[in-house]
Design a protein around this nucleic acid. Sequence first.
DNA 1: ACGGATGTTCGCGC
DNA 2: CGCGCGAACATCCG
Length: 274
Amino acid sequence: MPELPEVEHAARSLRAWMLGRRVIRAAASPTRILRTQSPRLLAMRLSGRILERVERRGKWLLLGFAPPAGLLLHLGMTGKLVRRRLQEREPYSHVRFVLDDGSVVHLVDPRKFGRATCFRSFEEAARAPEIAALGPDARDAPLTAGLLAERLAGLRRPIKVALLDQRLVAGLGNLHAAEALFRARLGPRRLAGRLGHEELSRLSRAIAETIDFGLKTIEPEGVDGDVEYVEEPGAENPYLVYGKAGEPCSRCGARLHSFAQGGRTTFYCPRCQR
DNA sequence: ACGGATGTTCGCGC
DNA sequence: CGCGCGAACATCCG
């Protein structure tokens, strides 16, 4: 689930819930989310500390505590952060922070594709190779046509595949890459290094619009301390092409298509994306 | 009932 | 360098 908008929402939620608060007790379960680190290390490093700083880089979250400690989080495919009452049980919770206000913040992740890694400081976490390797952020860079041109120069890969490569541009996932290409009217098979300046300019604008729309979709009224975002079972798909193969294109009326690309499903309009 | 797909990333082999 | 594949894991849909 989590692409840039969801991770940005998670960062905002963390700030609303935890900034300036003391973590009475931090704990983790022995899952692969911790990789090689032990749950005890996380508990020792983070218990008793105050959260001072939360930042997002691409789909990663960086937390800074005082006295100095850092935590790097990735939500993987099914990860999310939730806040619960102290006595509530939370299925698939793998990391928890018991706060000084009687609430508990959980990192929940059924599929365990996520990651949590402790560091001695925020700065040390920010220097981790996973973070250092990230390209410019799709939302914060700002991702101008010129910067896009630089990142995509010479690439012979389809633009849809390139947009998923976090080293090129950080934050887009399968859903938002497809949405951005639709907004830019660019065919997903176009080679990334062969896009013209006008096309890159459309893509730059399209990425910004896609991320803004994604954020608006998951937090219509901003961050609410207690209400978490959950898609309603019967709710309508709010996206332009994602998950809409067979339906008419909202721009030209042609039937939307889907096909496999780099192991993922790409949705697009064969008529107005060129 | 079961096969296939799901918003991520990594490592491998060609 | 680029790409396809499988793996990690749990759930859902048809």
